[in-house]
Amino acid sequence: MMESLLLLLLRIAGLGLIALALTHVFIGRHLRWREDAEQLTPVNRAIFHVHTLFICLVLVMMGLPCLLEPAVFLLPTRAGAWLAWSFAAFWGARLHCQWFVYGWELWRGKPRETAIHWLFTFVWLGLTVLFAACGCWQLGWRA
């Protein structure tokens, strides 16, 4: 019961992570990344674009095993433990950045930005809890 719920949530997360990678095309267009990046020095402009590309690659590569083979996150193996807990730490760090690195003035008092801020808060928290739950499951914690 709990296992099938975790597998379902992992597949949904996988789909979401891949969707998030694809959304970067529209986010970049909307926030005018290309135009803004023109202000940077050539080396920093190149680094910005390469980093963005690699974030999308990481999201797709994180999403694919979640979508296609979610059981690898529940099997109690050394690899599975590293995967589950490092992914949990990854999204926990992202949640921290959402609140304490991006300034509150970027979303406060702006209805759309506030909605996006809370949506991201929910998604990052969900991913953190989901992967931590997978780590707990591997350890044999069946709460």
Binding site: A89, H96, A132, G135, C136, L139, W141
Partner: peptide, 17 residues
């Protein structure tokens, strides 16, 4: 043992952060 170890582990990581 497992739940408590997980909770302590998470708290230790947060303390490091």
């Amino acid at each position: 043992a497992v739940p408590a170890t997980v909770v302590v582990g998470v708290l230790e990581v947060l303390l490091g952060a």
